[in-house]
Structure formats: C-alpha cells, structure tokens
Design a protein around this nucleic acid. Structure first.
Lengths: 126, 126
DNA sequence: CCGAATCCACAACGATACTG
DNA sequence: CAGTATCGTTGTGGATTCGG
C-alpha cells in the first residue's frame, strides 16, 4: 500500500510485489529508533559509541540491529577502520539524507504542536 | 532529543520536560500503524470498518488501540452517531492533516527509492 | 571498540467472546 | 457496528558474555 492512490483493479502481479516491498520498507523505517538514528547522524559522521551516547535510552542491541537494517536498505554507509581497537563510522547516504528531510518535518511538527497535544491529552484524560 | 540542535548545558528543568514529552509523542506516532492510519484517512471521513478494510493486515485491536492514542493526542476526531447499529466516523484534525504532509513525504520517498533500496538489499544479502 | 549470540522477562499482538 | 476485556502465544528488547 503506502501509495496514496488506490490500486486499480484487476491486480497486477508486479504492482502487488512492488506494493508489498514498499510496505516492508515502510515498516522498517517507520520505527522510532530508525528515525532517531537518522536525526542524530544528520550531516555528521558518527561512531557507534557516539550514536549510543547521543540517542537517549537506546540499547546496544537496538542500535546495532537498526544500523544493520539501515545499512542493508542503503540509508547509512558503514566504514570500518581496521585499527585496534576498531573504529566504525556511520554517515547518511544520499537516500538517507533525502529521508532525513521528511523526518525533520516530523520533528518540526512535534515541536509546533507540542502544546496542542498536551492540551488534547488533558482533555482526553480528564 | 527530537530537537535537531543539541541541548545547551546546564540542563533546564522545563526544557528536559518538554523534551521528554516530545520523545513520548514521537514514539507514539513513529510507528507503522499510526502512520498508515493517517495516510488511509487522508482527506476522507472514514468508518472504523472502512479503515480496517483499507489497511491491510491490521487487527481490530491494533486499529482501536492506535485510534484511541491518536484521538488522545488530537490527531483524529471521533464522531459517534447514536444509531443502531452504531456508526463511528474518524477524520483528521488540523494537527493530523499537518502531520499527514510529512507522512506523504515518507511515502513519496519510499516510491522514489524503491529500486535503489532493492538493489542495496541484494548487494548486502549477497 | 564494535558486533554477534544467548538467555529470558515482559510487552505486544491475534483470537475470541461479550456488551451497548 | 464498534468497543472492551481476557487469554494464550509470539516476539521484542535488555542484560550479559564472548570474540575479532
């Protein structure tokens, strides 16, 4: 799905395949850790440990897991410097930077509507 | 967090509170079901059953749960018509429509980079 | 320092049944 | 039709450990 327009019938095999792929990708990135990682890397080149420091509450496991996923999807580029101890740096790829723009929009939205949301919550909870 | 710029030290109690609230909201909406619901409602006014039909793979429970959360945060407006059987309609609020714009961006992004991502995956998996 | 694997606690989720 | 509650299962995610 993900596409805004409704699929025209009858279903075409190729379209449904592209659709399910789109859904898969969408499910991959529509999770808070992935989006926070994108925001945190931003224009920087960051080490694993720096990312872990920069993203409050993320566990070692979640960070590696999401970074792998994002590398697989071509959102981040992973550079290993074979020193000892090893040094691994992450930066956004071109698609990653493009996605970042929309994530920035979500962050702006959060800031913009913070007050409204807080008020709405109070109304709802009361 | 969520804010792009780094917090300046020393930490201010109000800022950290706003920050943790932002994180909470961000965590609420940065999930695939919420985003898919927003996309599916779009400019329409939709009944619960229509939403369920329109969002492939969502369960009754997940749909209600997310709709409640979104109503609480003021993203959707819920209208109950006390007929029998009951009729409940959902539509996006103003903040909801604003958020929708950025979600649209994510969907566009997915379509735009579908091929690149597929290629990246093949490279990674091989 | 970074990553993978193991263990397991607990939350998320689907299915089902019941209410207005 | 829409919503809530309960239950059983799955699976997510944290803690820990080991390896390069």
């Amino acid at each position: 799905m993900v596409t805004t327009k409704h699929s025209s019938l009858p279903p075409n095999a190729d379209l449904t395949r592209a659709d399910s792929l789109a859904r898969e990708i969408f499910s991959d990135i529509a999770n808070k850790w992935a989006l926070l990682i994108i925001e945190t890397i931003g224009d920087n080149t960051m080490r694993f440990s720096a990312l872990r420091q920069g993203i409050d509450g993320i566990s070692h496991k979640m960070l590696t897991q999401n970074l792998r996923m994002m590398e697989r999807n071509g959102l981040v580029e992973r550079t290993v410097y074979p020193t000892v101890p090893p040094r691994v740096e992450y930066r956004l790829t071109d698609p990653g930077r493009a996605l970042r723009k929309t994530v920035d929009g979500m962050c702006d939205w959060t800031q913009r509507y913070l007050g409204d949301i807080e008020a709405s919550r109070r109304r709802f909870d009361g």
